[in-house]
Design a protein around this nucleic acid. Structure first.
Lengths: 240, 240
DNA sequence: CGACGCATTGATTGGATTCAACTAAGGTGG
DNA sequence: CCACCTTAGTTGAATCCAATCAATGCGTCG
């Protein structure tokens, strides 16, 4: 597996040649293991390096004064944590490992050098962050206008689709190492209500979920329940 | 006023020289008037041009199957509608003029040319879209974890801060041409509840609001009420 | 003047939260 | 190997914030 996920993901947008692949592989040579529950980056940090998830799950989050937490994105293999930080300078949110993770540490200078010499990869990486932004817009819709049932269905559809893109779904089954607390923080609900809502989704034979796995029994009806339309993920190939 | 707003906004991030300013002014020479309630871009469009608000207010929005609407961003003078569309190809949401607007239409080719020859402006424009993304993350927090009172206070703080950046605030007063319906669609509430909540904000002497204007009576307490911290707007100058 | 958009108010309903207890599973150490 | 502890998941009852339904006020514009 390793950094394949990045190649898979960027390959969805651009036709990468062997040289591109070699450069990306070279870029990700410095990988560190991060234990679960550890911050990969904390709110306010001024990181000197760009971080990329190569294995495991992480989450962007923000803590509120009252102690509650809002998760704003789930990060899976192939996702950058902070491609933007070279421009913005400081993190305005935290990123925490939800499972033990492998994270590639990439020197900003090396990233800058790559970006100024390889236009195709630059565009492909910007495509990635622009898709992240599109996902974020969907999350606003999700927490703003959908009820608990549709909200959870939508998140599960998104994760199913994104995991599929990096080849981590087999027969509509995937590893889903999220606790109900984490799902609650992502959907703006309470853990108790997430629990009851998951039970309804199970009772309606849309999913099997538990012990770190998700089995989507009827992806069509799950999408319908969540009002999910994958087009916002922009997965058509555009650069050749 | 004209396209000053763009110069003001990008000038917050980068020290622009006269040539930069001239190029931006040249870029925005083609301005069209858009009447209120008209889509500037519709969901699914494949625009050939980049659009920039030079006057008036607009909103990014998404319609749901049940007819409800979620607004995901307010656009004010100096904001790009779709800097990303050259990469993503198609709009995954709509943009509607909330007031009569002046919109600069910029040929994608011209934008590409500028971006490949002027690094400082390129970084400044990416900074703009990355800040938009940071704002979006705050909106997820807003609708996900804040109650109606804090939610509306936060949105008003954001608009106050952003309008200040483009010099459209005088003594904590600004034009705020939003209906309560539009505020409701932005905050994930109902118009009725927005109305009652605005009355509480008025009764607490935090704001005066009505007839298209907002007067912030106590910005400190309003920020406190909304849990607002402006650092996510990344307004420190970084490029020289 | 009548019609329309927008703001306001009241009464009622309901989805989700809160608080609390309890079960199940997994890991650790004596 | 079992006692103990922790973490995650489940269930129930009461409460509450916001939604819903409905009506009214009010200013503006054709």
């Amino acid at each position: 597996m390793g950094d394949n996920a990045l190649l898979l993901r960027l390959g969805l947008f651009a036709d990468l040649d062997d040289e591109d692949r070699a450069e990306l592989t070279q870029l990700c040579r410095n990988v560190r293991a991060i234990p679960a529950k550890r911050d990969i980056e904390s709110d306010g940090d001024r990181p000197e390096q760009v971080h990329l998830i190569t294995q495991g799950w992480a989450a962007r989050y923000k803590l509120l004064p009252d102690g509650s937490r809002q998760i704003m994105a789930f990060l899976i293999p192939g996702d950058f944590c902070d491609l933007h930080v070279a421009v913005l300078g400081r993190m305005d949110h935290g990123i925490v490992a939800l499972t033990p993770c492998n994270v590639a540490f990439i020197d900003s200078a090396e990233m800058d050098a790559l970006m100024s010499k390889n236009n195709r990869l630059t565009r492909a990486m910007w495509w990635g962050t622009l898709v992240d932004e599109a996902v974020l817009r969907q999350w606003v819709v999700n927490v703003g206008r959908r009820d608990a049932y549709a909200r959870i269905a939508h998140v599960l559809c998104e994760l199913h689709a994104r995991m599929q893109l990096v080849d981590l779904v087999t027969e509509d089954q995937l590893a889903l190492p999220l606790t109900q607390d984490e799902l609650a923080d992502a959907t703006g609900l309470t853990p108790v209500h997430v629990n009851r809502t998951l039970q309804r989704l199970r009772a309606d034979n849309l999913i099997e979920i538990g012990s770190g796995r998700l089995n989507v029994l009827d992806i069509g009806r799950l999408k319908e329940a969540g009002g999910f339309d994958a087009s916002y993920l922009h997965i058509q190939r555009r650069v050749h």
